[in-house]
Amino acid sequence: MFNMMSIVPKIPVAEGVTDFVGWLTDTFSFLFDPIKVHFGNLMDFITESVLMNIPPLIFILLVAVIAFFLTGKKLGLAAFSIVGLWFIHNQGYWEEMMNTLTLVIVASLLSVIIGVPIGILMSKSKITETIFTPILDFMQTMPAFVYLIPAVAFFGIGMVPGVIASLIFATPPTIRFTNLGIRQVSGELVEAADAFGSTGAQKLFKVELPMARPTIMAGINQTVMLSLSMVVIASMIGAPGLGSEVLSALQRSQVGPGFVSGVGIVILAIVIDRMTQNLSKEKKANG
C-alpha cells in the first residue's frame, strides 16, 4: 500500500547543519580565534588581576556598603551580603565565585549592549518586531546544550563559549522588555514630543527611554539572573566557577560539596538580584 507519510524521504537537516557549522568554523576562524584569545585573556584579567586582587574582607565590605546605599539605607541586604559572602569564603569557594561573577558581569554587559539597541529597533518597526520575535523564542526555548556544541566549535572550551551560551539564553528578556517598555510609553507623551518638533533621537533619549527605564531595568534584572542560571551549564564546556564545582560534585555524587557550591550560587543570585532591582527603583526616585 502507498504510504502517505514516506512520500518525502528524510530531509538531511542534521547533516546540513553539521556541514554549515563546519564551514562557519573553517571560514571564520580568522574572526573566532582572536575573539577566543583576546576575550579569554580579558576575562582572566578581570578575575585574576582585578577581582582576586581585592582582599576578600574589603570586597565583602564594599558589597555591603553598595547594598546599603542601593536599598535606601536599609540594613537587610547589607547584612545578608556580609554573612553570605563570608560563608562562601569560609567554604573555600572564593576564587570560584569570582570566576562566576566575571562570567555573569561580562555576559550581562554584553547582553545589555546588544539587547537594548535591538529592543529599540523592534519598538520602532513592526517588521523588525515580526522578524525578531521568533528568533527570541528560538533562543529562549532551544535547549542550551544544543548551542553549546557550535559554541565549542567556534571558541574552544572555557569562559568564552560560556559567555556566548549565556548571551544566547539571557539576552532575550532585555530585548523584549526594552521593546515593551518603549511601546508602553503613553501616546500623549510621544505626541507631545513630536508636537514640539523633536527629532527621532531626541524623542528616544529625552522621552521614550527615560519613561521606559523601569521596564528596561526589569528586563536587565532578568538577564542577569538568567546568565547566572547558565553558569552550571557553561561549566560543562569548561567555564570555571561555582558551576563547575556543582558539576564535579554531580559527577562524583558528592552530596555535601554539591550542596555548598549550589548554596553559593543562590547567595550570589540573591545579592545580585536585589541590587539590580534596587538600581532601577533608586534611579526612578531620583532621576
Binding site: 503613553s186 505626541e191 513630536d194 514640539f196
Partner: peptide, 16 residues
Amino acid sequence: VRRKKLSMVFQKFGLF
C-alpha cells in the same frame, strides 16, 4: 514649523 509656530496643549496634559 512645529518648533517655532505651533504649540500644543493636551487633554491629559502630556507632561513628562
